[in-house]
Design a binder for these strands. Structure first.
Lengths: 101, 101
DNA sequence: TGCATATATCGTTATATCGCGATATAAACA
DNA sequence: TGTTTATATCGCGATATAACGATATATGCA
């Protein structure tokens, strides 16, 4: 894991809203049960936005930060963007921290 | 672990110099072999300062940030301040992240 | 007491981050 | 084609962070 990415990941994690989002995405069936498209696709950006209570542009920026850090990924289906945790990356980060911190 | 402290810890970790300092303090005998007082006391602030190459005031602020986050602690002996990792707190943080992240 | 050393605090400047509303872009649909 | 919906991007003001030099504080020593 490159230092730049480690830096980006820890910076991304240093904001409570972004940690909340990651937490919600861990068990989407618990937090986004009302989503129409199957949660296996991920969670739609608008759902996350409404859950935070912040503005659309702000949440879009948080999601972009998480994505640049490699902590989530998204796929576009039609006009929707579905977000998922990148659990492999998160596990790698945890392993790295356990090892080197 | 309170959310405030979690936030402080992750913010503290989100700066590479502070991560460097924590890393050095993990094996002080490797990085501060030239310190006169026994390393069991901790590492003297001035040693850390010179190792970073940053100004004295900047490093003092970084050490204060780490200390507020509970990631290090210091003891004053005479005119010196010796810093140690707070490994208990760091382990608690890692456990918390493994659990909740 | 006076001076040197170690560290913290202050004041400043530069840069980054957060949050917002406004606007741009892209897809869906009438 | 025009309109709605979903998301990204832009530009801004407010606040936080980082770095520095200067100065304050505290200890040790002559």
């Amino acid at each position: 894991m490159s230092t730049v990415t480690l830096d980006e990941m820890l910076k991304a994690l240093s904001h409570p809203v972004r940690r909340d989002i990651l937490h919600w995405l861990k068990q989407p069936e618990l937090y986004f049960a009302d989503q129409e498209p199957p949660l296996s696709l991920g969670v739609c950006a608008g759902k996350i936005e409404r859950k935070t209570g912040l503005s659309q542009s702000t949440v879009s920026a948080h999601l972009a930060t998480l994505q640049r850090a490699g902590l989530v990924h998204s796929k576009k289906v039609g006009q929707w963007h579905f977000f998922c945790r990148n659990d492999a990356q998160i596990q790698q980060l945890l392993a790295h921290l356990s090892q080197d911190l």
